[in-house]
């Protein structure tokens, strides 16, 4: 039954957004960087190199890292690997960040201590003396949504977002059984506070997953950047029960639509078939290959054929 929610949401969508609030770039840049292993000492340098490619001004900024930490399975590859988060902490500190915060509102579990300890993130934040914020129970502020692809109109967001200068979405490269793929835009479900919207952020499912992804991303109150952990990804019945897929890559960029479109191509998934990307392309960012300048490695070198569940077989109809 839950599989119907995205479909219903999609049926109900009206294409609306505050035109004055967005200036979609004519073209975007996305960096695909080789990273073969989590054990590699060079991860930090790779991320620094990626950030520098975009000319981000980090000095003096409060940087909020938002990994994907939704659940833990000792045999699975559900979460953004702690080595990537650690490397990002190091990288942003090296580049002069005033403060680096790690924040997540896990979608399934309420047990932060368990999730952090089991995933290995506890030791990372402790060793680096970094604050971890549970966005699920953070203080909240009610905002007006700037687009209306759902009937939500308003959204409670954690106060921590309003106190940061840069939000870095750090998803895992995964397929997703409701949304098709879960990348830097879907990862933003985790900023929505569970204490208000429940677990597994069910109010957003009822509002329509596709529309919710677009509405959240269109209305976040701070600049964004993305670092996708594609060193080991997940195919099949993601985001929890799929199989590992070694991809050996990090994807970085400041246009999250373009980052996700590129990451989808790495999975041999047609981004235009991913509903939320198709909608987001209209006003948030670039999807077409011709509008995305690829920097770093050649996508073709890292392209893998990620399996998808049957209902998303259309994602494999590659257009270009």
């Amino acid at each position: 039954m839950a599989s119907l929610y995205p479909f219903i949401g999609a049926c109900n969508q009206e294409l609306r957004w505050e035109k004055s609030a967005y200036t979609k770039p004519k073209s975007s840049r996305v960096a695909v960087l080789a990273a073969t292993s989590y054990a590699t000492n060079g991860l930090k340098e790779t991320i620094i190199r990626g950030i520098k490619l975009f000319g981000l001004e980090i000095s003096g900024k409060r940087v909020l890292l938002k990994p994907n930490l939704v659940e833990f399975d000792p045999n699975g590859v559900i979460n953004t690997h702690p080595a990537v988060i650690e490397a990002a902490i190091d990288a942003f500190k090296t580049l002069g960040a005033r403060e680096v915060i790690v924040a997540e509102g896990p979608g399934h579990r309420r047990d932060n201590e368990y999730l952090l300890s089991a995933s290995g993130l506890y030791d990372v934040v402790k060793d680096h003396r970094v604050t971890y914020v549970d966005l699920n129970t953070d203080e909240v502020r009610l905002i007006q949504l700037k687009s209306s692809f759902t009937s939500l109109k308003q959204l409670y967001l954690p106060e921590t977002l309003f106190n940061a200068d840069l939000l870095v979405s750090m998803p895992k490269l995964k397929t997703h059984h409701w949304a098709g793929v879960t990348l830097s835009m879907k990862n933003m479900f985790g900023v929505v506070p569970g204490a208000i919207y429940g677990w597994p952020k069910n109010a957003l499912h009822w509002a329509g997953i596709v529309g919710s992804i677009v509405d959240i991303n269109s209305s976040l109150p701070l600049p964004r950047f993305a670092i996708v952990d594609g060193i080991v990804g997940m195919e099949g019945d993601g985001p929890l029960q799929g199989q590992r897929k070694n991809s050996g890559v990090l994807v970085l960029g400041d246009d999250l639509v373009a980052v996700d479109a590129t990451a989808a191509r790495l999975m041999t998934i047609e981004p235009r078939q991913v509903k939320y990307l198709e909608l987001a392309e209209e006003f948030l960012g670039n999807l077409e290959r011709s509008n995305i300048e690829q920097i770093g490695e050649d996508v073709e070198r890292f392209r893998q054929d990620f399996k998808v569940i049957e209902k998303f077989s259309n994602l494999k109809k590659i257009v270009g």
């Binding site: 208000i196 429940g198 677990w199 069910n202 109010a203 499912h205 009822w206």
Partner: peptide, 10 residues
């Protein structure tokens, strides 16, 4: 009962 009105029982 749901976490929030107009959503599923959990």
């Amino acid at each position: 009962w749901s976490w929030t009105p107009e959503s599923f029982s959990w």
